[in-house]
Design a protein around this nucleic acid. Structure first.
Length: 452
DNA sequence: TCTGGGGTCCTAGGACCC
DNA sequence: TCTGGGGTCCTAGGACCC
């Protein structure tokens, strides 16, 4: 049975300067799915419940999700698969190629649950497995309870385990979330920073490189200055951060650590800035025909994404990544080159986009080079229904809409590329490897989960 | 021979995130 | 032999303007 919705919204006072435990806290929470891709796989393989599981990146190259059991065995995050093969085989770790159809669908269910619980306009989907919640209206003394309730409901409704962290700013909520994951038993999956003492304790327990916004470069810089934990970083002067940590980005980070929110919640209606489809080739390719097929196919994929979100693109950019001359011995030294063009009129039509993409690729292609990767990026996005007609362009930009819709429907419900453009090719020498993919249990009729 | 100051817009590239 | 893919934001610096 489903628990009743939380009705959090109505029961609360408007935001105000908070002093007493009963007043609204102004706090932010982040809900983060535990080992998300692995959890999705486990959902349809209950036999793997306590077993180590990993999920691989496209091309089966890197490990991009690990369960706690796999972490304990020493499997590294973002580590190349082949380097961990020995540990994986010796310990019978279950290995999956990534199955984005499945993960995307389960992600949607988690996000829908959150929106149902706290209200649509209080949820910012930050990534496929994370969302910020604006819980500003929840009083301090109710925070723990509310977060626990959110966690339990998501788990009950979707079967995906999550961790919740809450604090006065986004950065602090991320700090809290990390601690809740590190101590799942003790924290029960919820960690709330709602006092100066709790913030100090949490920051002292968090190394600088584990702070959201501190990447490899800044971590080295900070460590060299003997700034080792979050508390020390918080006490650095803002001016220093402005000079040494990327300008306003740095000062914002310091303020967020002090509990002053500087990174606002994003409006869910904001339009995206770009859509891209980029891939490593399954094996290096040399021929123009292969490059052309790949670029046409990636353009088709990107155009599908575009239409699914009701955008049209005003800018298209193509890039190729090479690895030097054909006769040189193999050294991994990728060189990227790109070209772009501004479309005379924003479009979401696959045919039109391919027509512009191929000549760009042709200008980039140089015979004799070894190509590792290609990509297509669409930018200057506008809502599809408001495409500005260009006075000097003939034709109706909506003419292809019906055709596109029909193709998308067939490809989504049958199989990818059941219908495709001739330029996408038939040979597909460049197609990525995906040898260990599970079924698309929730989005394909012919791959539904079977109960015997 | 002399050679300002202030502003905008654009792009490439760096750093970060999951 | 084998190292992913898809994003965001910010800054510096060049081109151009008056």
């Amino acid at each position: 049975m489903h628990p009743a919705p939380l009705h959090i919204i109505n029961s609360l006072a408007p935001a105000s300067i908070n002093k007493t435990p009963e007043e609204s806290s102004g706090m932010t929470a982040i809900v983060d799915c535990n080992s998300f891709y692995c959890s999705c796989e486990r959902l349809f393989r209950p036999d793997l419940d306590k077993q180590p599981v990993v999920v691989l990146s496209n091309n089966d190259g890197c490990i991009i999700s690990r369960t706690d059991e796999a972490k304990k065995l020493g499997v590294g995050m973002a580590a190349p698969y082949y380097q961990n093969r020995e540990i994986i085989e010796k310990n019978k770790v279950a290995v999956f190629s990534s199955n984005y159809n499945l993960y995307g669908d389960l992600s949607m269910r988690v996000m829908d649950t959150l929106r149902h619980l706290v209200g649509e306009d209080r949820v910012e989907v930050y990534s496929v497995d994370e969302a910020f919640l604006n819980l500003s209206m929840i009083p301090f003394n109710k925070m723990q309870e509310v977060c626990k309730q959110i966690k339990d409901t998501v788990e009950l409704w979707t079967g995906i385990k999550v961790s919740v962290g809450a604090g006065p700013s986004k950065v602090l909520s991320k700090v809290a979330n990390r601690l809740s994951k590190k101590d799942k038993e003790g924290s029960q999956g919820v960690w709330v920073l709602n006092s100066e003492e709790s913030i100090r304790f949490a920051l002292q327990k968090t190394s600088v490189e584990d702070i959201w916004g501190v990447g490899r470069q800044y971590a080295v810089k900070l460590r060299n200055l003997c700034i080792n934990d979050g508390w020390q970083l918080r006490n650095m002067p803002e001016e220093w951060a402005r000079k040494n940590m990327g300008g306003v980005v740095g000062t914002r980070l310091i303020r967020e650590l002090k509990g002053l929110p500087c990174i606002p919640m994003k409006d869910p209606l904001e339009t995206k800035k770009m859509i891209a489809t980029t891939r490593m080739f399954g094996k290096p390719v040399f021929e123009w025909t292969d490059i052309r097929e790949a670029v046409a196919t990636y353009t088709s994929r990107a155009a599908e994404k575009l239409r699914r979100q009701f955008y049209a693109a005003g800018y298209i950019s193509v890039f190729l990544v090479t690895n030097g001359r054909r006769d040189e011995k193999y050294i991994y030294n990728p060189q990227s080159r790109h070209r772009y063009t501004i479309l005379p009129i924003a479009s979401s039509d696959t045919h039109e986009l391919i027509r512009h993409a191929i000549p760009l690729a042709e200008m980039l292609y140089e015979p004799g080079l070894k190509y590792l990767k290609a990509g297509v990026m669409l930018g200057s996005l506008v809502p599809d229904n408001s495409v500005q007609a260009n006075l000097f362009t003939e034709g109706n930009p909506h003419a292809h809409h019906k055709l596109m819709e029909a193709i998308d429907n067939i490809n989504f419900s049958q199989r990818d590329d059941a219908v495709k453009y001739a330029a996408s090719g038939l040979k597909r020498n460049w197609k990525m490897r995906q040898e260990l993919r599970s079924k698309r249990f929730t989005t394909r009729w012919d791959e539904l989960y079977e109960i015997k």
